[in-house]
Amino acid sequence: MKIVVCVKQVPDTTEVKLDPVTNTLIRDGVPSIINPDDKAGIEAALQLKEKLNDGSTVTIVSMGPPQADVALREALAMGADEAYLLSDRAFGGSDTFATSTIIAAGLKKVGYDIIITGRQAIDGDTAQVGPQIAEHLGIPQASYAEEINVEGNKVVVKRQYEDRHHILELPIPCLVTALAELAAPRYMSVAGCFDAYRAKEVKTLGFEDLKDGFDPANIGLKGSPTNVFKSFTKQAKGAGEIHKEISAEDAVATIIAKLEERHII
């Protein structure tokens, strides 16, 4: 089984500053980490590999600038078998659509049975890239996974929902998006850190390597349908009130009263 985990290198904070002119993140001076949901995905993949114990491998794929190499080395030091960095100037400025287009092309090149991505990245928070990759590849997907197991020739996923869980069975190949709760990531090991540089390599795939896998009009800044119009810091929402076991009439009256209280109606 070839388990592929897609990871993103992100700034190590949820409160990075925005450049007010370009509306992009100011990354200078902020340490970079593997996105937490993605890191849980790596751990889940490693656990799956260990549980299967049948020669299955874990491959890491990331799209990003050359500096993202260190995130891939970290994944190798945790125990991943191989790593690919999809990197090219032509990929710069990609939105989620263009990114998923490129990653899907990379995955076609690399090969896969189970693809695990993080649910969402802490810098963009879109939760779009994983599902989009599955669409590009035409394979089934399950998002918000809290548990991933392989049973026979099926992948069984426990999906988190607001008030319940869904147990989903997917054929292989498929894509699963992981929550940080999925698995607490292990540390790198000492031998892992050495091997990540001395025994393993990060293979870089650029535009030329992947061009047969996508329409060049769909990648990079020009291939991105999304334009950032304006960025701002969101005001924190209140905790909300929960009224249980009240009649429909009382519920309506309570809501009306609240709306009136705030001069909404």
Binding site: V70, R73, E74, Y187, M188, V190, C193, F194, A196, Y197
Partner: peptide
């Protein structure tokens, strides 16, 4: 430090 020693240092620090 070499890259592998830098990576190790990061791991040791996090672990510690």
């Amino acid at each position: 430090l070499s890259n592998e020693h830098k990576l190790l240092q990061e791991m040791y620090r996090k672990f510690a």
